[in-house]
Design a protein around this nucleic acid. Structure first.
Lengths: 265, 265
DNA sequence: ACCAGAGGGTCCGTTAGACGGACCGCAACA
DNA sequence: TGTTGCGGTCCGTCTAACGGACCCTCTGGT
């Protein structure tokens, strides 16, 4: 499936929707057009389409998130077993440590951020929900590698920028994680960034392997600080597991098998 | 702006996304194709487009909500000043009364459901987030009419199925709401359905006029039951207002002026 | 009062890209 | 071993998305 096998106008419409951020939840025609690099006419037509379907609301040329997004919000949170209370747990951990807290799941040879909270530090590591990161580096990547089959290690090594020789490193990481129950990374994927990660009990999340991580500038992730970060991390992971176990109304969702399923995208 | 001024393929893609519901968060190609009435080929192309952008995830022909929906979830909730805790308040009210609880805002000559919770009764009134209802009938409609300018009453009466003569009824309703602070409706818009509604303090919601309502089969909305329902409703409205006032980090959002702005769609 | 500039929105001829019928391969089932 | 139902691919047709030119309004400047 080449990229051209997708519908251009739909891609463009989604590009526009992706312009929405926490910081700028209001779009204007000209801003959109500039940002997505399309003529105003085309942009307007897409915005109007989004508006008429309730995805956006508009008035006087200002476009804001519409109720359709709220509808999907509910469905998506349920499907991902991320009830509202989980966000509060993440926020707490972010406040306690001052750093960025992220939740990842694996999708094929990538890990995807499905929830996050940011601490107060002005120098912070920013990963947004939906962002995809590789598996060949990073603290949470190691969690997934340790859970996956050997085949996964082969596949990841194969597509690693360090080449197939990276496989030995992966094996060492996996051994560490299996021994310690947690993982740390310093400037592996990106300079200056460190992270520490643990697994959330999959039993509480429909069997989906999920990694919880705290990340930030390496200068704040010293050996001396790690135990404290790890403690916060473990506490948060336990609270999430407990929180979900509480409302065990959680039916076996389609997503369960889906995410754990193999097969590189 | 005629309907033809919107992009067909985008409309179709959104139609597919609207197939997602709480009950059926997993889509398959053939199901979608049947539901939206399109050839499999076209449907597949749209699904693939949604998948490649992270809006859906797929594996073995099963499509589930993707992380992009989670990303928007966050943004939409913030923009609408509906932090996670609000849902819990609605759920509580739904459990206490056994009925359906809805939150509406006005958009032009319509009211739109922006949040809801369902009670345990198997016979229940179902309104989903994003659904648009008219202003010429219904308990929460009366709340909005009482808040709006006289012009609004004219416009609503003009498009009412009861004809312009309906204007007198609207005036009477408005007088009732302004006197009592709440509204009730019995089988006004739809047979067998009753509802009771109050206003949530706009000050807590960025100045947006918002109606909170409880609705269900008329047989359960007897005169004797109304005081109890009203008490629950008022308590929930106060809790929501208080909850939002608490986290008054709520910056003045774009949506604020937008929703309160006049102008029929 | 007048102009300049920017922004939202409309019109319409062109053509590229979305469309969908025919087809394939696979798995379950009889 | 034929049949059905499903997810997915191919490719010629033609429609519907595109975008340049244009208009209107509002705002700020002088």
């Amino acid at each position: 499936m080449a990229d051209g096998d997708t519908v251009r106008s739909v891609r463009r419409a989604l590009d526009i929707l992706f312009l929405l951020t926490d910081e700028r939840p209001v779009l204007t025609l000209t801003d959109c057009a500039r940002a997505v690099g399309l003529p105003k006419t085309t942009t307007l037509r897409l915005l109007q389409t989004l508006e008429r379907t309730g995805v956006l609301w508009s008035d006087n040329g200002r476009y804001v998130p519409g109720p359709a997004l709220l509808r999907w919000s509910r469905i998506a949170s349920d499907a991902w077993l991320l009830p509202p209370g989980v966000q509060h747990i993440l926020d707490t951990a972010a406040r306690e440590t001052g750093e960025t807290v992220n939740v990842y799941v694996r999708k094929g040879l990538q890990r995807v951020c499905i929830a996050h909270a940011q601490g107060p530090h002005s120098l912070r590591h920013v990963v947004r929900v939906g962002d995809e990161l590789p598996l060949w580096a990073g603290a949470s990547a190691k969690i997934f590698l340790a859970e996956g089959p050997d085949q996964l290690l082969d596949d990841v090594a194969a597509c690693s920028p360090h080449g197939p020789a990276h496989r030995a490193t992966l094996d060492a990481w996996v051994a560490d994680v299996r021994r310690d129950g947690w993982a740390v990374s310093h400037a592996e994927r990106e300079d200056l960034i460190s992270a520490i990660s643990v697994r959330i009990d999959p039993a509480a999340l429909g069997g989906v392997v999920t990694a919880l991580s705290i990340s930030g500038p390496s200068t704040r992730f010293t050996e001396a600080k790690l135990p404290e970060l790890l403690a916060t991390l473990r506490r948060a992971a336990a609270r999430i597991a407990h929180h979900n176990a509480g409302q065990s109304t959680a039916q076996p969702l389609g997503i369960t098998r889906l995410i754990s399923g193999e097969g590189a995208t």
